[in-house]
Structures are given as structure tokens and as C-alpha cells.
Design a protein around this nucleic acid. Structure first.
Lengths: 231, 231
DNA sequence: GTCCGGCGCATTGTATACATTCAAAGGCTG
DNA sequence: CAGCCTTTGAATGTATACAATGCGCCGGAC
């Protein structure tokens, strides 16, 4: 039973990520109160959190607006991700525990199975991305730095807002998996520089893939166009 | 005329930085309401912001506590600062404008004057640190990445909380200045790798200096011990 | 026709009363 | 005497009324 503020936060966040609330769209507190079914106080709490997480922007007496992302900002984000995820991978190389390594091994094995299985593209992509998150977050955890972990979480959240990691063709999945396999080897021999460079390549490739594939297939099955509601 | 929430934020933040509120100290909303002279709503706004900036931690029904920092976390912070400030310096090398370069030149000239001047240690340190901030923030700006700038601001804010950058001996100031001079040269010849490595050294040295000099002299002239009020 | 000024309204900022929840103390029982 | 349960109250979560503020419209003057 989550509290009202958390409920409002989740609700608004989902609506932003799903495209129900379009970038640049104006959202007043009153609207959100109605949409979330709670009072203004928790809605305000949720808004301020979403602002601090770069989902929303506010100007006084003009309501909150869904943050717009331009390609230059995307580049910034991915450059920072490359730097920090690479750093995390290097740290992880010398600190990773057998249990964490096993977790990554298992995830990668599962990925193998998915890519060779008979599931539809959408289902494949969805499962693959879940396992991808497992691999990455395990590396972050293995890096053993609370603040690095926090930064990476924020950064990836922000990337998510521009619907990036969600759009993937099967070839991109395979390329991505190739990086995972190499990372796995680098981790097993505990080579920090190798880990770092593979991870950096992995992130750069993701950025490039995003530039190539606009909004084609999304793992959640929604189209990128705004939902035209019945009314 | 700042609003109440901003006022409360500034007030509480100052009290944390000045040591009036000690690390680990419990702060209830009611206390802060009294201390700030505003109602609970803006106090809550301020608290949630301070929590998101790592000044405070909260547990439900136990009030907010001033965040404690241990040496391991300090190491994490400085490692990340080295990485990101180095990266910023590398980007700045190829992007810095003549105006920004001139600003840095001027700040460094002023630093020279201060170090060779006759002012007392405290005054020297205070002025030096102000110019130090100018140099660093100009580099961040010259790096031309909004998100990198935001991350660095956060990171340095966090370092401030542990009263680090504030404690400096004159020898450390001179060493620090040596790095500035080298950075200046590297920027003038627009050598990214040189800029990056100098900046990383600069940050590492700051961390090491902090480990050597505990809380000796603070630039704001306050002692590190809690202020014992008159009552 | 255009620019300036002031008024009205939409929207957020603030205060406060009430509901809910969890931590901690104290008593009961085995 | 120890461990669990109950009870209590402090502290936060929520709702709502009221205040303040800034945008945009409308009218008038130049």
C-alpha cells in the first residue's frame, strides 16, 4: 500500500515515459490532482521530485512542463554514461564477488537463449532489456561506490525519458550481446582496462544505434506517437 | 524577496555547513519550523530538497538527521570529482573561448598577487579559494555540457559538507597554484590530455591534503567544534 | 494602428487542522 | 528474568482554505 505521494509520482512518471504526456506539455497541479485522485500536497511532492530528476521543468504560475530533450543533450548524457559506466566496470573488475560474477554469467546465458529462441521480436527485446539491466546494475553494484551508483541510476533514468534504450532492432541486440560476452571474459580475468574499454564501446554503440533507429519498435509495445484518446 | 521555502532551505543549509547542526543530529520539522519562522509546508519542501542533495537523511517518524560522512565516502567523492573534472578539462581544452581563457588568466594573476602579498593566512586562504572556484567553474562552463556541469556542482557541494576544501595550509595553496599554472599552459595550447591529467592531479592532491591536514584553519574563520551558544 | 498601463483570473505559495503510522516504553506472561 | 504484546504519543502524511503572484487581456491614449 504505497502512500499518496509515491502513487502520484509513479503515475505521472509512467504517463511521461509512455508518451501520454508529451514533451513540452503543460501540466497544472489541478490536472494532476484529478488524474491521480489525491490532493495537491502529494502531487506537489511528486512534482518536485520529478523536477529534481529532470522529468519536469517548472516556471512560476505556468505550471510544470514535461522536459524536452534535444540531440545535443542526448550526446552529453551518453558521453557521461560512457565515462562513468566505464569507470564502474574498471572498478568492478578488481572488486566483483563470485556471487556477482555468477549472476552476470546467468543473465548472459539467458540472453543467449532468448536470442536463439523462437519468441517474437517484441518479447525478445523486452526480456533482453530486462537482463541487460541486470548485467549493468550488477556491475554498478560490484564497483562498490554508493555515489557512483547513484549517479549512474540518475543518468540511465534520464536516458529512459527520451525512449532510447527501448528502441532496438534484433541486429542491435546481437551487437549488444557481443559486448556482454566480451565484458564477461574481461571480468573473469579481472582486467580493469579491458572492462572499461568494452563498457565504453557498449555505451557508444547504444548511442549510435539510437541515432540510426528512430522510434521503431518499443519494448513496451506502445507506439511513439501520442495516444489519441477516444474523446 | 525570496519565498519561504527558499529561505528555510538557505537557513538550514547554512546551519549544517557552519556546524551549528552536527552530523547525525536529529532535526524534526517542528524544530525547523521554529528556527526558520515559517510553517511546516515550506520546511518540508526545504527538507526534501536537502535530502535529495545529500545534506540530510530521513527515516519515517524519526525526523531528519544531518548526513554523516565517512572517509570511504570522501574517497568516492574525490575519485568521481577527479574523473569528471578531468573530463571537463579535456573538453574545455578544445572548446574554451578567448573570453573564458582571459577570465582564467586574470584569476590566476590575482592568485599570484595574493600568495606574494602581505595579507594574513586566513584572508589569503579565503580570497584564494574564491578565485579557485572561479577557475574551476569557468572550466566547467567551457566544457559546454549542461549535465556535466550539474553533476560537478552537486559533487562539489557534497565535498563542501565535510569541510574539506576549506581547510588549507599555505603550502597546499602554493601546490594548488602550481597546478593552476600548469592547467593554464595546457589550456593555452589546447591540449585535452594534458588538461585532463593536470586536473586529475589537482583533485587527487586536494584529497591527499585533506587527509594530512585535519580541521585546522577554515576559510570562514569558524572553528570546527560545535558552537556553544550562550545559554 | 500600436503601444502602454492596469485590472482580473488562473496558478502556485503558505498555513493549519486532521489522519495515519511507526518507534519506543512498560507491563504482562511464561 | 526475559521476551513478546499492548499501548501510547510523537512525528510525518494528507487535505483544504486562504494569500500572493505573475500572465494575459482589454481599453484607452497617442
Amino acid at each position: 500500500m504505497p502512500n499518496a505521494a509515491e502513487h502520484a509520482y509513479q503515475r505521472i512518471r509512467e504517463n511521461i515515459l509512455s508518451g501520454r504526456y508529451q514533451p513540452g506539455q503543460r501540466l497544472t497541479e489541478a490536472e494532476l490532482v484529478e488524474a491521480c485522485g489525491v490532493s495537491r500536497t502529494p502531487v506537489r511532492t511528486a512534482i518536485s521530485r520529478l523536477v529534481s530528476e529532470d522529468f519536469l521543468e517548472t516556471n512560476r504560475n505556468q505550471g510544470a512542463r514535461v522536459k524536452r530533450w534535444d540531440p545535443a543533450e542526448l550526446d552529453e548524457l551518453f558521453e557521461l554514461r560512457g565515462l562513468l559506466e566505464g569507470h564502474a566496470a574498471a572498478r568492478a573488475a578488481t572488486r566483483i564477488t563470485p556471487a556477482q560474477l555468477a549472476k552476470i554469467d546467468a543473465a548472459i546465458t539467458d540472453m543467449d537463449g532468448i536470442l536463439q529462441g523462437r519468441a517474437g521480436q517484441l518479447k525478445k527485446a523486452r526480456e533482453f532489456l530486462r537482463l541487460n539491466r541486470v548485467v549493468h546494475s550488477t556491475v554498478w553494484e560490484a564497483a562498490g561506490s554508493t555515489h557512483l551508483l547513484a549517479m549512474l541510476s540518475r543518468l540511465v533514468e534520464q536516458s529512459l525519458q527520451v525512449r532510447t534504450v527501448r528502441s532496438f532492432s534484433l541486429e542491435r541486440l546481437a551487437e549488444s550481446h557481443h559486448h556482454h560476452l566480451e565484458l564477461q571474459r574481461a571480468l573473469h580475468v579481472r582486467d580493469p582496462q579491458w572492462c572499461e574499454s568494452v563498457m565504453r564501446s557498449h555505451i557508444r554503440a547504444a548511442r549510435a544505434a539510437l541515432a540510426l533507429d528512430p522510434d521503431t519498435v518499443r519494448a513496451d509495445g506502445l507506439r511513439s506517437a501520442p495516444q489519441s484518446s477516444a474523446g
